[in-house]
Design a protein around this nucleic acid. Structure first.
Lengths: 68, 68
DNA sequence: ACATCATGTTATAAATATATAACATTTATA
DNA sequence: TATAAATGTTATATATTTATAACATGATGT
């Protein structure tokens, strides 16, 4: 999975810690997410997307090969 | 969480079992999902949305209160 | 150089999604 | 009505997300 969290975070001048607190997770969770190291829950994905006021599809991307 | 999986499944004339196989999960998983009993992974949500050719936001809904 | 802040990383624990199996109930249909 | 198909439901196991704590690295500023 790939994500643009880092880009949107930069655009909003937020640190990982600030984003983490805003959506109620740990800083490490944001770090792992940004590196595509896991597949968040829909709920967490939704919280981050709403914070940045973008759609989930604008934030997270799966290769077709990942969906087989 | 609420979802329109059941409605889209009806529109596509699919059983829970057919949908489950199409996205690689168990039938029970679809049953629990349709009842809003849990929060799927983003990957599973993406697979179902792509199958029905709708956005994730058209398929799954969170109340604001669920996101606090 | 030193201190502070932001991020990376690793190991382990806790929580929760999903699998599995079994049986119950509802719905369709012969 | 009877039979099968679809869905509901419960209990337990497994996998994965997320939390937690600890320490490392990199950047920034004094």
């Amino acid at each position: 999975m790939k994500t643009k969290i880092k880009e949107f975070r930069a655009k909003h001048n937020m640190t990982q810690l600030e984003l983490a607190k805003a959506v109620g997770v740990r800083r490490e969770t944001i770090s792992f997410l940004e590196k595509g190291e896991y597949n968040p829950s829909l709920k967490l994905a939704t919280k981050i997307a709403r914070l940045f006021q973008v759609s989930i599809e604008e934030l997270f991307f799966f290769e077709d090969s990942e969906l087989d």
